[in-house]
């Protein structure tokens, strides 16, 4: 009965092969290396998942409507460098808030162009990718190092055993899950990706909901940028190149359809953790970094293939 309900409930898109891949990786990791199960490594793993996690969650919202947001990597750079730069003159929370707000503003512009002017999301956010990257360099050509140690708190400190940034990610994922499964706006966003016309005729303001997804993506990218700058202790205008690809990969591994209408918060979380695990393991095994990229690509294809065969049954 419960199993049947879980199977029927499309919000839980975690299926067999995915769990298997996951468990196998964990067992391999824990048994064949000495360093995997150490506190340091686990903490590291959690911290590394922060950026991809936040970006993937924002990406999921956009992908659910049938869109895509390629600009998130550039937003990471802009938000980080603005927060770091402004922290010299402003209180740190305010500087960080402005950095995040810059991300929301980017999302707003993307969303307006996609939702109101009906431009193709790929084109709009591709243009935004280069524009926002340029803005980050305009703001500061050279890396900015915040002088106040307080800037590092959000990215490096821990509360108990958990890094602050990880707690933020967990909270954001929980909120996103509630949003998508338990609010009218969340259900409407999923429905828009499935059949935009049916949703419009049901009296839902489709452009507004699409706009909201791009603003969420911008917000989370901004947040990711600020946290990343804080963790590294330096904000670079060049950071975040190709981050959008990891975010998209996490969504797809997690069962999202790029055509929209399918995807879940839990699946995306699984995708994020799986990607981080793969990175972490390959590093522990001392695989040369170019081979890491090759292997990672192949693993993504394998997981998505296994998933598709299962979904088709």
């Amino acid at each position: 009965m419960i199993v049947q309900r879980l199977r029927d409930d499309r919000s839980l898109l975690i299926n067999g092969s995915f769990v298997v891949a996951f468990v196998v990786l964990l067992i391999v990791a824990a048994t064949t290396t000495d360093s995997f199960m150490t506190d340091d490594n686990i903490t590291n793993l959690m911290k590394q998942s922060v950026t991809t996690g936040l970006l993937a969650l924002g990406m999921l919202m956009v992908i659910l409507t049938g869109g895509i947001d390629l600009s998130v990597g550039s937003v990471v750079a802009l938000a980080g460098i603005m927060a770091a730069g402004l922290s010299a003159d402003l209180p740190i929370p305010l500087a960080m808030a402005i950095g995040v707000a810059a991300g929301v503003a980017c999302g707003f512009v993307n969303g307006m162009l996609v939702a109101r002017f009906r431009l193709a999301p790929f084109v709009v956010t591709l243009a935004a990718l280069t524009t926002i990257r340029g803005l980050a360099y305009v703001y500061s050509e050279t890396p900015v190092t915040p002088t106040d140690i307080g800037f590092l708190w959000i990215g490096t400190e821990s509360i108990g055993p958990f890094p602050v940034a990880t707690l933020i990610v967990v909270a954001v994922f929980a909120l996103a899950w509630v949003f998508l499964t338990r609010t009218g706006a969340g259900r409407a966003i999923i429905a828009i990706g499935g059949n935009r016309e049916a949703v419009r005729l049901a009296g839902v303001n489709v452009p507004r909901h699409i706009l909201v997804t791009y603003m969420i993506s911008g917000f989370l990218a901004g947040l990711a940028g600020v946290i990343l700058a804080s963790r590294v202790g330096i904000a670079q205008p060049s950071v975040g190149v190709a981050f959008e690809l990891n975010a998209i990969a996490a969504c797809v591994i997690g069962g999202a359809s790029l055509a929209g209408g399918r995807g879940s918060v839990l699946g995306t979380l699984g995708g994020v953790v799986l990607l981080a695990l793969i990175d972490n393991l390959l590093t522990l095994y001392d695989v040369q970094s170019y081979w890491q990229q090759v292997l990672k690509g192949l693993i993504i294809v394998a997981v998505v293939l296994a998933r598709r065969t299962e979904d088709e049954r």
């Binding site: 499309r10 409407a188 999923i190 499935g194 059949n195 016309e197 049916a198 949703v199 209408g261």
Partner: peptide, 16 residues
């Protein structure tokens, strides 16, 4: 084409 969101559940469609 314009009545139902086929991938979604009966409940989601009825509540839309």
């Amino acid at each position: 084409g314009s009545g139902l969101v086929l991938d979604l559940s009966v409940r989601d469609n009825a509540a839309l």
